[in-house]
Amino acid sequence: MTQATEEKKPPNIDIYKAWCKACGICVAFCPTGALARDETGSPYVKDPEKCAKCGLCELRCPDFAITVHEKKERQARGGQ
């Protein structure tokens, strides 16, 4: 795992393929369009630079199959 050295560095987004059922929720509701679906419907990180580290994909994944590293602190605490 790469340690973030500065704020602007794009985060790592892990998609755990073994658990992913390719429902499309993470991609559809990604606020910045960092995620996309491949030809089989599975999600992949299309544009890591766009990721706002909001963590919503992780919150809404019904299968615990996606992780955003170095989320914003507010999100990591679960929000208000």
Partner: peptide
């Protein structure tokens, strides 16, 4: 055994996370 039993995209998994 994971992934769990529910259909792809089912809300029960989201609820379980919460």
């Amino acid at each position: 055994k994971f992934p769990h039993v529910w259909c792809p995209g089912c809300g029960i998994g989201i609820m379980l996370g919460a």
